[in-house]
Design a protein around this nucleic acid. Sequence first.
DNA 1: GCTATGTGGAGTAGGTACCTCCCCTTACTC
DNA 2: GAGTAAGGGGAGGTACCTACTCCACATAGC
Lengths: 221, 221
Amino acid sequence: MARDAGPAAPARPLRRDAELNRRRILASAREVFGQRGLEATLDDIAHHAGLGVGTVYRRFPSKEHLVEAMFAERMEEVGDLAVEALKADDAWQAFVDFTWQAAELHSTDRGLREIMLSNKFGHDHVAEKKARMVPLITQLIERAQAAGGLRPDFAPSDMALLHMMVGSVVEFTCAVDPDLWRRSLAMLLDGLRAEPGKPSELPHPPLDEDEIEEAMSCWRP
Amino acid sequence: MARDAGPAAPARPLRRDAELNRRRILASAREVFGQRGLEATLDDIAHHAGLGVGTVYRRFPSKEHLVEAMFAERMEEVGDLAVEALKADDAWQAFVDFTWQAAELHSTDRGLREIMLSNKFGHDHVAEKKARMVPLITQLIERAQAAGGLRPDFAPSDMALLHMMVGSVVEFTCAVDPDLWRRSLAMLLDGLRAEPGKPSELPHPPLDEDEIEEAMSCWRP
DNA sequence: GCTATGTGGAGTAGGTACCTCCCCTTACTC
DNA sequence: GAGTAAGGGGAGGTACCTACTCCACATAGC
């Protein structure tokens, strides 16, 4: 809790150049963590920001602090999506919309994916945001089930698995076709209907043989 | 190609103790790669076999060689499943059965999962086994579609994604509930039907709140 | 112009992985 | 049962990576 102690940071403000660099670091972290995940090093982030490592460590005592500072905000966004969805009339559509929107966020931010599904990173602040989401998602699910749209045996914990699955497709194919996850999610959602009709139209074409080969060559477990 | 040059290994046979240890190494590798994936070190495998590292390196010039020797055989098994499935009458059921059986193999062998979905490990031998499977799976899919069981927009490359997804669930939850993937696969398959009826009965209960918490604590991206 | 504040990046410490080397042990041969 | 070629063990070499520190030098702001 060295810095970032909530609103109205106390003591003397940063020098102008320092404040600018602080923002550069956060922007760089957002990009780099988003692309390479939380395994990215602070060295990477510093260089990507055009700064030295020392500068980053002066501002954020450790990687943990930077992660905590960055992702609390992003996770808030996901929570807000759920709140918004709960206001909609059509409970099934609300569930579907929320799931697509959350997946959309995950698909463009590997760090967000990792921090949402693992407890290995992020502490108090992040955990609090996560805790907030559980009842929201549970409610979203129960409403969709009560309305007869969502299969009744779908449990809140299945939501984590769903995002895990979509995330794995993103990771597997992002170098070849970064939107392919849409295809998989559409199929998954077809399997979640309580009263399924015809399969939905898939929003994205499949990979061809060369592309799948390339995905297998890029991907590392 | 130092050893393992197909049937009837030439030159002088190994000394009795050496042959015994060679088998110990392979058995150990199967267990360790299965549990910890291909990132396991030859040191791990040696110790798990109760041997020194030197012994392993004497027998297998590199990790690559060991992997190649081990997994060619296991991949053959998956191919055989497909051949068997193509003989069944009910094309949709054959597709479903094959998918379950393949997932079953994947679920108990992390190394197999990794080698099937990544080209980073294994060369000639392994690649050959993979190539064999493509037409088999394609045929399995086309038959199931022609019979009106499988949705017509399902592509062969989607099979890799399906196993990717199931594998991610295995990895995420194996420490907490190693059979949970069955639940996810059942939902996935419900989404693949051309003429879906009611959702199928799920073969496994969901995780409760504590279990999902624990999964998130164990799992590392 | 002076000084507190900020910067850069080489360097440290500590870890991990693959693989080699060489002394000692053991199986097989005569 | 002695001699010898083959095998076994595991410390340690090499190479690499990551988190983090330190301090000579630069700059903002008064």
